[in-house]
Design a protein around this nucleic acid. Structure first.
Lengths: 230, 230
DNA sequence: TATTATAATATTATCGATAATAAGTAGGGC
DNA sequence: GCCCTACTTATTATCGATAATATTATAATA
């Protein structure tokens, strides 16, 4: 009884391949513009063409991969200042809509989610003061969870999908280029300020802070983007 | 032209299957909520699993198809008033951004595209006065081209992709439910008003008219949506 | 009859192989 | 030496078959 089928975290070959590919692209393990050699990927991932192509197909509609042309395979989307500016503009526009509605509709579960992810983010910081380099998978996970939690109560699933996609697109820039940053920054206080405003149901303030937060990250990345990409 | 989605209309089995499937879903030939039986589709389309699944996978990220769950196949996304309201909200928000920038950056080619598609739309009307039922593929094509042309000069390819997706999502409602409309409406003048404002570089007016245009369509559909979907 | 267990069927997800196409290379004419 | 063409290799797109899983039908038990 109650043999409640646990959705098997393993999942299908397709979904694990999708996650793996996405992660490798976001982290830069497969670099911008790089060609995706199907046969090689098929071997290294130990999967067959079908789920591999299906995964790539998803990444194409996410914008992380481009179709080079008929019969010409795929390549990781190149990076450029223009692209980063666009993604930033869209993230600001859309996350603000989502945040505003989320603050409006958020219930207890929403508050809990915000507080919880916020807590984990700060705990991580104090625990690993030396590792406050953003390049850290645990922090990355909580950072994403935090942003997701904030807008999660907006009741607009399509919008959430868009925000998720845009997060990925901008995340790649941060993960690949933030290591070269020179200006120090207290991301932690930015986050807690946003969370506080949201929990106080101060939509206007929360949205403004969120826009600034997104914009600031982009500005810092743009400042260190290799010149040939501008 | 901002040809964001279809790689090559002739091209691969995959792309033709994708177009075909999308069209059948948009027109309602495969109805909302309907299960996609892979084996049956494979036979009727005379293709094998690989390109079929790849096509379906794209439609999943577009939001027209849902993954029912691991090993449980796919189904056409159901329709609902909430979903239509969301899609409408997002279309208004995003197309306005795109239109504003398009008006700002539009060059000669852009003007030509707007005038041309506008012309085709009106020509169609006068040619087939009896057929001014929106359910007509030729008109549908020009209608889409018109909307695409208007925002095509915004220089924000990701945004254009989103708009394209949202157009599809709302298009399905129009194609499936507009036949039951009761209030007559002069869509033609709405279109020409938008085009005129855009070509006059009156961004504010054009955007306002565009919002009203999108909203009006949604309102009319909502008015005739079967009650069980509200 | 209702309920569970078991078998039969249907459907999906994945694989390995083949066909189609592009990219690369060497040879021949100018 | 350079360009064009035929040929070889590399890579992709597609297929048909198989394995994994879900769904339905049937039987057995209480």
């Amino acid at each position: 009884m109650a043999q409640t089928k646990i959705p098997a975290e393993s999942g299908t070959v397709f979904s694990t391949t999708l996650s793996r590919l996405r992660k490798e692209i976001l982290t830069g393990a497969i670099g911008p513009g790089e060609k995706l050699r199907l046969d090689q990927l098929r071997i290294t991932y130990d999967v067959s063409f079908s789920p591999l192509r299906e995964a790539i197909s998803r990444l194409v509609s996410e914008g992380l991969v481009l179709q080079a042309g008929d019969q010409r395979g795929f390549q990781v989307a190149p990076v450029s200042a223009d692209n980063l500016r666009e993604v930033t503009l869209l993230r600001k526009s859309l996350e603000v809509i989502a945040l505003q509605r989320s603050i409006q509709h958020g219930d207890d579960a929403w508050e809990t989610g915000v507080v919880s992810s916020m807590h984990h983010l700060s705990k991580f910081k104090s625990r690993n003061p030396a590792k406050m380099d953003n390049i850290d998978e645990v922090w990355e996970n909580w950072h994403r969870k935090f942003h997701t939690a904030l807008i999660g109560a907006c009741r607009l699933p399509v919008l959430l999908q868009f925000c998720d996609t845009l997060y990925d697109l901008s995340d790649r820039y941060r993960r690949n280029f933030i290591q070269f940053r020179h200006v120090p920054r207290d991301v932690q206080s930015e986050h807690s300020a946003i969370a506080e405003a949201a929990l106080n149901r101060n939509a206007e303030l929360a949205c403004r802070l969120m826009e600034e937060h997104i914009e600031l990250t982009a500005t810092m990345i743009l400042a260190v983007l290799p010149t040939e990409l501008r």
